[in-house]
Design a protein around this nucleic acid. Structure first.
Lengths: 224, 224
DNA sequence: ATGTATTTTAATGTATACATTACAAAATAC
DNA sequence: GTATTTTGTAATGTATACATTAAAATACAT
């Protein structure tokens, strides 16, 4: 007989440390441009240096920080020019996904989902719920990419989206919610329905370019 | 006075282990689908488990292997469908790079470089020097991408190129050298010169699609 | 003989101890 | 007082010891 019991989470400590440390960087608890000692971070996160080190190595590969030989763990700044490049790459990847999506008949269920989250965005804006707005914006682009049915592309886009997320979190309070976004999403959906690749791509590219411009301006204002 | 002395490389052991281990995977010394114990690998590479572990974590993120809790380090196979996806992404990224490159006047020096390495490829083929051929093929695409002047894109393409490299190394002996490649490169150069974006993209896409097709067929033949 | 419970074992995950070394401060020479 | 050498120290990099645990092996009962 199988005993039913509470399944206690037993993820590796190094994984927990990884997620916590990651959040601390994204949440700007660890200040950009600063150095932090392994020992201190380890204690702060309730682990020894080993799991902390393993987490830091992963985050270094993600580009969030740098392990500098005798100075500590360096929190890398998000420079405006780099963020612009990242947005450009993101925009191209989405363009590719849209092209693929339009080359075959688009799944009506997916279209419905896109419409649903767009409505959610509008509603969220009306209630001044920025977090809900951001979540649905995120969802919209995830669904859009999933249309490509290329898993490699999907995870790649996700990783780039995360990179921009950091900048968005930094500037969430500063920037005014882009009311245009929902309308742009509507247009993309419309173009998808009619298989109008060119238009869908054009709108999305424009959408990204505007978002990129706004963010990089804010970043330049924040950084020296 | 500064004494001049032989500068001995003092890279971290974990870095050396990383590179060695990486090469062992790419070179198929560690067989795909097999599990290897940390202890054994560490001894084999002349280090303790700690540096080996750090190296393995990095390679896990690169997607070459997987650290499986109580079984060992698993060398991930390259599955044909995944490789097809990777090639598709690579192709799109190059398409993006070419678009950008063509949107501004192309640096004549770069064009000259492209022509040089293409000639090198032809010459290498005449001497049956597959390694030199592969090196120059690599160079061609590197230069092509560098035209985009987007560093994020450049490093991204490089990482994808490396992923395909693994499959190429596996199949280098089997496949016949694609004599068409040089001609395709020539056509891309010609299109670039005339700022003919559409043609340049079309040829490159076709080029990649063919390479992808050949490789995935071979991979399917090798794997179960 | 088969299925269940218990013990053993072997491998990872984590903590810690030790070695190494870049940087800085102090000391000495001029 | 400045420059150079020496020494000290603090932090990482590496090795190792220990804890944990999933799976295999064994024992046992039915």
């Amino acid at each position: 007989m199988t005993r039913t019991m509470t399944v206690v989470k037993k993820s590796k400590l190094s994984d927990q440390v990884f997620q916590k440390l990651r959040f601390m960087v994204l949440d700007n608890q660890l200040k950009v441009g600063n150095y932090y000692l392994e020992q201190e971070l380890a204690e702060q996160l309730g682990s020894s240096r080993t799991p902390l080190r393993e987490a830091a190595i992963r985050l270094e590969q993600e580009g969030l920080l740098e392990i500098v030989p005798r100075r500590g763990i360096y929190i890398k700044p998000i420079l405006a020019p780099q963020m612009a490049e990242i947005y450009q790459v993101l925009s191209w990847l989405e363009t590719a996904a849209i092209s693929i999506a339009c080359s075959k008949p688009v799944d009506p269920d997916k279209i419905a989902e896109l419409e649903r989250v767009t409505n959610n965005m509008i509603e969220a804006l009306e209630h001044d719920d920025l977090v809900a707005w951001a979540e649905n914006d995120n969802l919209f682009h995830q669904i859009l990419i999933s249309l490509s049915q290329n898993n490699e592309l999907i995870s790649l886009v996700n990783s780039y989206w995360e990179k921009t997320n950091r900048a968005r979190m930094l500037t969430l309070r500063i920037r005014k919610p882009p009311v245009q976004s929902s309308q742009e999403h509507r247009s993309v959906i419309e173009a998808l329905k009619q298989g109008d690749v060119e238009t869908a791509i054009a709108i999305n590219t424009q959408h990204r370019a505007r978002a990129s411009g706004e963010l990089t301006n804010l970043l330049e204002a924040i950084n020296p």
